[in-house]
Design a protein around this nucleic acid. Structure first.
Lengths: 218, 218
DNA sequence: ACAAATTTTTAGATTTGCCTAAATTTTATT
DNA sequence: AATAAAATTTAGGCAAATCTAAAAATTTGT
C-alpha cells in the first residue's frame, strides 16, 4: 500500500464511522485537501484492489479487507500518540501531526513491541480506544468523573464548569486535559473519590468530580 | 525534501565518507538499486537545489548544505536504532530496515525529545557515532576491550578469539554483539577489568578483555 | 596514441497521484 | 415532471521518479 492509499483508507474509515455508511467523493476530497476528480481516480484504484465497495455516483464503503487495513492504521496512529505523550513528554495537542507520519511505518514487530513497551494501553491521549492487533476495539464514551465506575481508567477530555476558580484548582492539582485518571475508590458517605493520576494518588471531592469529563472504555 | 532525495543524499554521504571524495553515478545506482540514468536525473535535481556539487561526467560531492542534511538524517537513523534496541528489545541486527523508514519522519521536537529520552547517546548499536544536533560528531575507533581507557563506553562489535569456549563464556555472561560496555575500573595488578553491562557490574580477566573488540568514541 | 571498453548522459516512455475543464448523473426546486 | 443546482466522473495534461535504448564522454589496454 502506498502512503496515499493509506491516507484515503483512513479518511474513508473516519468519515464512515458510526453507521459505517457510504462516504461521498466530496467529503473525501475535503478531508484529503484535494479535488473530487482526484478522489474519483483513487477510489477506482482502491476498488480494483478490493479495499472499498464502489458503484459509480453512489459513494464508497470500506470492504471487510479495507476495514482491517483502516483499523491497523488507526491502531498504529494511536499507539504512537501514547508513546509521544507518555515517553517523550509531548502534550496531547501536539501529537497528531507526528503520529500522522509515524502511522505509515511498516513493521509488525515494531508495533507489537511498542504496544508492549507502553503496557498495552487501551486508550490514546484523546481518550479514543486503541484497536487490538486483531482489529477489535471497545467503544469509548464520555462520562463525568463521578459517574465512572471504580476500577476504571479514563482520559480527561473536558470540563463542565469552566469558571476560573475551578480551572485554577485543576492547575494547582496538576490535572490537565489529556491526563489519564484511574478511579481507585469512592467514599459512599460524601461521594469523594480516590484517584490515581500520573502515578500519584489523590483525593477529590464529589463537587470536583462532577465537573470533569473523562473518556472511558466500554 | 522528498523521501527519495533524502535517500540519495544519505547514500552519497556514505559513499563519499572518509576522504569525502567524489562519488560515481554507478556507485550510487548500485546502492539505490536503480539505474545509472535515473541517478543522472536525480543528481541534476540535487545540484539545482544546491545539495551537491556536480560537473557532468565528473561525479558528485555533497555541498556544505548537503552535508548538513546528510548528517541530520544519519543522526535520526542512529537515534532510532538506539531506541529500537534499548527500549523495544530489538537485536542490533534487526534495526536497520525499520530505522531506514523512521529516519524520514519530519519533526525537530520528536528527535530532540527522543535524544533526551535515550539519555543523549553518543553511539548507536553498531558502535557508530551519533552526530549532534548541530552536525558535529566524534570519530569512532575499534579497540580491544583491554585497551579501552577507564571511564569510556563502547559497543561490542567483534571477537578476536572465536573459539567455542570463549563464545560459550560470552554467552554465559550475557555478553553479546551490540551490547554497550562501560569500563568502570582496571586492576593494575592483573589487568582485570570492572565493567558495567546492561546496568550490571561484572569483573572480567585481562585474557577475556584482550579478545573482545569494542567500538568507542574519539 | 588510439581503439575498445566502461561510464555517464540524453531521449523518449511509463506510472502514480494530482490538476483543470467539460460532460454526466443525481438531487433539489418549483 | 421539468429544469436548475450540485455532485461525480471522464478526458486530457503535468510533475516526480523511474525505465530502456542509444549517444557521448572518459578511461583502459596495448
Amino acid at each position: 500500500m502506498t502512503l496515499s492509499e493509506e491516507d484515503y483508507i483512513k479518511i474513508i474509515y473516519h468519515l464512515g464511522k458510526g453507521d459505517q455508511g457510504t462516504v461521498s467523493t466530496n467529503a473525501i476530497a475535503e478531508k484529503m485537501e484535494t479535488k473530487p476528480s482526484s478522489v474519483s481516480d483513487m477510489i477506482k484504484k482502491l476498488s480494483e484492489k478490493g479495499l472499498v465497495n464502489y458503484k459509480k455516483y453512489q459513494g464508497v464503503t470500506l470492504s471487510e479487507y479495507g476495514l482491517k487495513v483502516a483499523l491497523s492504521i488507526v491502531r498504529k496512529h494511536r499507539l504512537w500518540e501514547v508513546f509521544l505523550v507518555e515517553k517523550l513528554e509531548f502534550s496531547w495537542d501536539e501529537v497528531h501531526e507526528v503520529a500522522e507520519q509515524l502511522e505509515h511505518i511498516k513493521s509488525e514487530k515494531l508495533i507489537d513491541m511498542l504496544d508492549k513497551h507502553l503496557g498495552f494501553p487501551q486508550i490514546d491521549p484523546h481518550g479514543d480506544p486503541i484497536p487490538s492487533k486483531s482489529g477489535e476495539f471497545k467503544k469509548s464514551i464520555k462520562r463525568l468523573l463521578n459517574e465512572v465506575p471504580i476500577g476504571k481508567e479514563g482520559i480527561c477530555v473536558g470540563v463542565k464548569d469552566s469558571s476560573p476558580p475551578f480551572l485554577k484548582f485543576l492547575d494547582k492539582n496538576k490535572i490537565a486535559l489529556g491526563d489519564s485518571i484511574f478511579v481507585v475508590d469512592k467514599e459512599e458517605f460524601d461521594g469523594s473519590l480516590h484517584i490515581k493520576i500520573r502515578d500519584v494518588d489523590i483525593r477529590i471531592s464529589d463537587q470536583i468530580a462532577s465537573n470533569l469529563y473523562l473518556r472511558i472504555i466500554e
